[in-house]
Design a binder for these strands. Structure first.
Lengths: 280, 280
DNA sequence: GTAAGTTACGAGCGACGTAAAAATG
DNA sequence: CATTTTTACGTCGCTCGTAACTTAC
């Protein structure tokens, strides 16, 4: 049987146009390449080139061989990346979530349970999460609704309730509850990468301007040094313990009082049994 | 990049079950195979086997690699056979015909014109001929009707008229013309491999029994030594020159007075221009 | 003359086989 | 003890690079 490196050489010759240039690209001497192609022809029992004294061109066989070579090399490269991706996936616990808060809780749990695994988490749209679960990009996804699929188990995991954190001097700070509509128009501090929350803010508070911060620390600094309202959640210590400078007022909209579900392919149930037990 | 022979070895191991047996099948020492697989794993940067002290089994990566390896090896083998088939086709002039007579004429013409080519001819049903022309199994096919396809040129080539050759003593031998229905029921001598003629005989002379001979010589011997009627055609010298023992009577059915057409893919027009000129 | 290709020849490295060791049933 | 696998080591062969030659523009 011929060898893959000979097919690579064939492609290189097609790309470079001449043996010499191809040899250079392949870090090979030109005579070595010449002989390698002679061996390939011998192996295939077919001439691939039209040889003139100082010129070599593909003949019809060569053109055909080139097409086959391309697919074979392509398959070989696919094999390598598929294997390496599979290997990585074996040692990586990938979680996708539609919001950041569940990850704050779940990541430490997993890293304690699966000590030899890398944990990788994404915040994505629900659609992206679901297709990621089907394609085994995620072992676990966290959504706001259980998945309606017999091959997937959805476990109720957490409830999240949002508050608005107002400075005491704020005109609305005496209210017992508020809706997003009530605070629409306010300029607010907001974290980035908050998944579906951002879409809700944009939709329900179209007149507000959001000062977006990437880092929690940066946001906290701004919170201290400004009178801007922010959001808070029941899922962080920082959100719950009333801040000296802020009064937390519950938000009433159903969209900001959600239940999160952990969704796992049934085929992964066994592998993740320890994890499943821990979230129930 | 890894090499194809390593993939072949991988398959051999999967088939044989143990390194030792696989090595034997591969005509390789067992340690050599062991190291070759170690190199493959190194190359892929992925372990493929679960190694115990004196036992080696595929792991999940290995199973996946095996699937990829199968398709790659398969592609490689396909490449070899496709190239060799293509090479052969380049040096072979393949003609398919629905009847033998046109081949008697056309074959010598082609062999004179294309001296470096092998001529290969088949007698097949019209359907098989047409699909063979499309798949480049035939460069030329001979049919009884022109093809209705803009990519194919159909050239009128020959007319063939059948006669029935009766012994002078035969009751019908004084007729000026006959139809197949008139001689239905007669036991007749017939050549084999006569293409669509055979179907016509069977259809139009359902009550006849046909003594079929593979060889022309054998048929001629029987013709001399028996009084059995046979068919004759305008396309052979032997058919035309009246035989002392036979009287040739024209058959009137339209089915046995046919025009043959040479059909050639337009894409082959250039390559076959010499041939096309010679048949017009 | 430069740039392309093939052939000739010597050298080095890489894959092979043999031998040895270790483990299992 | 037979079977299976890995490691160690020396050898052989294959492929490489250099050099020389030929041809074309």
């Amino acid at each position: 049987m011929f060898e893959l490196n000979q097919l690579e050489q064939l492609l290189a010759i097609a790309n470079a146009g001449t043996l010499s240039k191809a040899a250079e690209q392949l870090h090979l001497s030109q005579p070595a390449l010449s002989r390698s192609m002679q061996r390939l022809e011998e192996e295939l029992q077919v001439t691939l080139f039209e040889r003139q004294k100082n010129k070599i061109t593909f003949n019809a066989n060569g053109d055909l061989a080139l097409e086959h070579a391309k697919t074979i090399i392509n398959n070989a490269e696919t094999m390598i990346s598929a294997l390496q991706a599979f290997e990585r996936s074996q040692h990586t616990f990938s979680i996708g979530s539609c919001a950041p808060a569940p990850l704050w809780r779940i990541t430490p749990v997993i890293s304690r349970q699966y000590t030899d695994m890398t944990i990788q988490s994404d915040i994505k749209s629900q659609d992206a999460l679901i297709s990621g679960l089907y394609n085994d990009i995620y072992q676990v996804i966290i959504t706001t609704h259980p998945l309606n699929d017999p091959d997937v188990c959805s476990y109720k995991y957490l409830e999240e309730h949002l508050y608005v954190a107002l400075p005491p001097a704020h005109p609305l700070s005496t209210r017992k509850k508020l809706s997003l509509a009530d605070i629409n128009g306010q300029t607010m501090l907001l974290l980035s990468r908050i998944g579906f929350w951002y879409d809700i803010c944009k939709e329900k508070m179209p007149d507000s301007y959001f000062i977006v911060q990437d880092e929690v620390e940066a946001l906290n600094e701004l919170r201290k040094s400004s009178a801007l309202p922010t959001f808070a959640t029941n899922l962080t210590a920082q959100g719950r313990t009333a801040d000296a400078n802020r009064i937390l007022i519950p938000l009433t909209d159903s969209e900001v009082n959600v239940t999160f579900f952990c969704c796992i392919k049934k085929s992964n149930n066994h592998r993740l049994s320890k994890f499943i037990a821990s979230i129930q």
